[in-house]
Design a protein around this nucleic acid. Structure first.
Lengths: 142, 142
DNA sequence: GCTTGAACCTCTATCTGCTGTAGCTTGCAT
DNA sequence: ATGCAAGCTACAGCAGATAGAGGTTCAAGC
C-alpha cells in the first residue's frame, strides 16, 4: 500500500495535483486508512503515470479521460485512441505554425530596434501600429 | 466621445474584456455619462489597440503593463522595451522547441499504430510506458 | 508506551486571461 | 412617448493546477 507522497515522488506529481485528479474523477477514489489517509495500489501508480505522461505530451484532461476509458476497455478498436492522438498532433502542428509567425514578427521587431530613446523605439512603434505588421495574427493565445 | 461598443468593434475586443482591462488597471478609468455609461477618447482606442496587438504577439498582461509604462514615458531608454521583446522572443522560441519535440513523439506514436485492438494499441502503450519515449519531455504545459 | 515531527487531511483562495449570464438601466432614434 | 439595442454591475466559470491555513495521523525512535 502506497501513501500519496510515494505516488508523488515516483511520478513527479505534486500531492495536491493527485488529490485534484481524484476530485475531477481522473483518478479513482483511493482507499483510506482508518485515520482517513489515502492508500494506493501499483495500478493507481500506473494510472497516474499514464495521466502525467499524456499531459507531458500536451493532451487535455478531457482527452486523457477518453484515453483512459479506452485503455480500461481493451476489447474496443484502437481507432479511437489513434484519432485522439492525431487530433493532438494536429493541434501541436497548428500551435507551432502560429508561434513561428510570432517569432518572425518579434525577431523583426527587436532587430530594427537600435537602442535609441523610447520616443523612436521600433518595438513600441510596431506595437502601436498594427499596420506595420508583415504577418496576420488575428488569433490570441497559443 | 466613443462608447464602449465602438472600441469593441474597432479593435475586435469583447466589451467585457475592455471592462476587464479597466478593472485590472491596464486601461485608464473611462469617463462616464450622467447615466453611468463609459465614454472614451481616441487615445483610449490607441491604448486598447496597443494592448490587443501585444496580446496577439503573445505578450503577457504584465509585460504589456511594462510596455505601456515605457510608452507613456518617452524620455527613457529603449533598452527596457527591447529586453521585454527579446524575453518574449526567447519564450516563443522555447515553446516552439518544446512543441517540436512533442510533435515528433506524437508522430511516431500514430505512425506505429496499425489500427488493431486496444489491447495492442501503440498509442496507449506509449502513454502507459514512459520508457518507450525517445525524447525527454519533463515540463508540462506550453 | 510515549513522544516527536514529517506527512497527511480538508477547505478555501489564487493564478492567467478572459467569457458568459442574470437582471436591470440608459441612450438614442422614431 | 416609446421601443429596444446597448450599456451597466455583480458574480460564476473555464483549464489545470498551486499555495496556504489550520488541524490530524502515522511511524520511527527511545
Amino acid at each position: 500500500m502506497l501513501a500519496i507522497g510515494t505516488l508523488s515522488r515516483r511520478t513527479g506529481t505534486k500531492v495536491q495535483t493527485i488529490r485534484y485528479y481524484e476530485e475531477i474523477g481522473l483518478m479513482n477514489e483511493a482507499g483510506r486508512t482508518s485515520g482517513g489517509q489515502r492508500r494506493y495500489f501499483e495500478k493507481d501508480l500506473d494510472r497516474l503515470a499514464f495521466i502525467r505522461h499524456s499531459r507531458q505530451l500536451g493532451f487535455s484532461l478531457d482527452s486523457i479521460r477518453e484515453l483512459l476509458d479506452l485503455s480500461d476497455n481493451p476489447s474496443q478498436s484502437c481507432a479511437e485512441a489513434d484519432s485522439i492522438a492525431r487530433r493532438q498532433l494536429h493541434q501541436v502542428e497548428q500551435r507551432i505554425k502560429r508561434l513561428q509567425a510570432l517569432k518572425k514578427e518579434l525577431k523583426r521587431m527587436v532587430a530594427e530596434c537600435d537602442g535609441d530613446s523610447v520616443a523612436e523605439c521600433k518595438v513600441l512603434e510596431v506595437l502601436r501600429d498594427h499596420a506595420e505588421c508583415l504577418t496576420e495574427h488575428d488569433e490570441i493565445g497559443a
